Computed example of a mutant assay.
Amino acid sequence: MHTTASLFVVKPIMLTLMADDIINITKSSIPFESRLPFHVEYGKKFNQYIYPIAVHSYAAVVAHSFATVVADALYYTLIQHACGMFSIIGNVLENIGKNDTDQLDAKSDKIKDDNYYKTLHCLRRHLDVIEFAEHIESVYTKIFLINLNFNMIMGSLYGIQMLINLDKNVNDIVAPISMYFGQLIHLFLHFWQGQFLLDYSILPYESICRTNWYYTSQRCRKLLLLMMYRTIIPCKITAGKLMILSIDNFGMVVKTSLSYLVSFYTMMI
């Protein structure tokens, strides 16, 4: 996001600084509108307040970039925290029964059954992490639905703008290219974190399969079996309850976006 914002801001600055060398015109002949990162409308007072308007425009680009980074960083942190908790639970489960290979007592005393209490603790923590992941999904599902549709449509429009200006001045395609790839990478990171949650949420199931469950008591095995039933259904992040955020679905979204791009471009030509 910072790279995209930087390219978006640098374009008008470079156009102003390198005007004499590249396009063989004086800097004073460049309209003030082209020195701003995006088009603005201020009427007849535009030239009178050009410098405050320029400061506001550049600050808006930087503020938008930082706001997006902060919002996404919170989402990434929540996902990584949930994945870390699944990993911790899986590590504890995998080591259950490994120190009891010499003594097997399927009907041991409940008070002395350390494996049972470890498994019970993991079961409770596992339910807490599942609830935490469900809260993440409920918070972001509607946002991702809007963001997904917006990215596909706007990405296609930026692609059309890039193709239209491809044979023209190179300066006219810097902003569309930066915005197109910026949105693509932004969307990929959302799906990538969703894939993390899918992979790590089934980690306790794999850990139970690797544990020495046959050296534990019957009550402990029942808890392990109960956790295995629940971990068969992975935790997921969806876009409006319609699409699961995963790497496979990201490829489908990119194909759909490219098909929109081709359709819009053929309609325009």
Rank of each mutant, 00 (worst) to 15 (best):
124 R>H: 10
136 I>G: 00
123 L>F: 11
217 S>M: 07
149 N>R: 05
217 S>E: 02
151 N>I: 12
111 I>R: 13
194 G>V: 08
142 K>H: 04
126 H>P: 10
117 Y>G: 10
252 M>S: 15
138 S>I: 01
150 F>E: 12
155 G>D: 14
227 M>S: 07
180 Y>M: 11
142 K>W: 01
249 N>P: 07
229 Y>G: 03
125 R>P: 08
193 Q>E: 07
121 H>Y: 11
109 D>V: 02
204 P>D: 12
229 Y>P: 01
229 Y>T: 04
145 L>W: 11
148 L>N: 07
171 N>M: 11
116 Y>T: 03
196 F>K: 14
238 T>R: 04
202 I>N: 11
230 R>D: 06
164 I>S: 03
240 G>R: 04
205 Y>H: 13
121 H>S: 15
230 R>W: 02
197 L>G: 12
206 E>S: 09
176 P>T: 03
147 N>M: 06
235 C>E: 09
177 I>V: 14
122 C>F: 02
112 K>L: 15
139 V>N: 02
120 L>T: 05
237 I>Q: 05
246 S>T: 10
143 I>G: 08
151 N>M: 12
159 G>V: 15
138 S>R: 09
229 Y>W: 02
154 M>L: 15
189 L>F: 08
165 N>V: 08
190 H>C: 14
199 D>C: 02
178 S>C: 08
127 L>M: 09
189 L>N: 14
205 Y>L: 15
163 L>I: 14
243 M>S: 06
251 G>W: 07
210 R>F: 13
187 L>V: 11
161 Q>M: 13
133 A>M: 08
177 I>E: 06
235 C>S: 04
120 L>M: 14
233 I>D: 10
133 A>C: 02
141 T>M: 03
221 R>V: 08
213 W>H: 09
236 K>F: 03
129 V>S: 09
211 T>V: 00
244 I>Q: 01
191 F>K: 03
153 I>K: 09
173 I>F: 10
120 L>P: 05
215 Y>V: 01
194 G>T: 00
212 N>I: 05
113 D>F: 05
222 K>I: 07
184 L>P: 13
213 W>G: 09
166 L>T: 04
117 Y>K: 12
176 P>V: 05
184 L>D: 13
156 S>P: 03
232 I>M: 00
156 S>Y: 13
135 H>I: 07
124 R>W: 03
190 H>I: 09
192 W>G: 12
249 N>A: 04
209 C>W: 05
118 K>P: 00
162 M>L: 14
200 Y>F: 15
213 W>R: 06
183 Q>D: 14
237 I>F: 06
206 E>A: 13
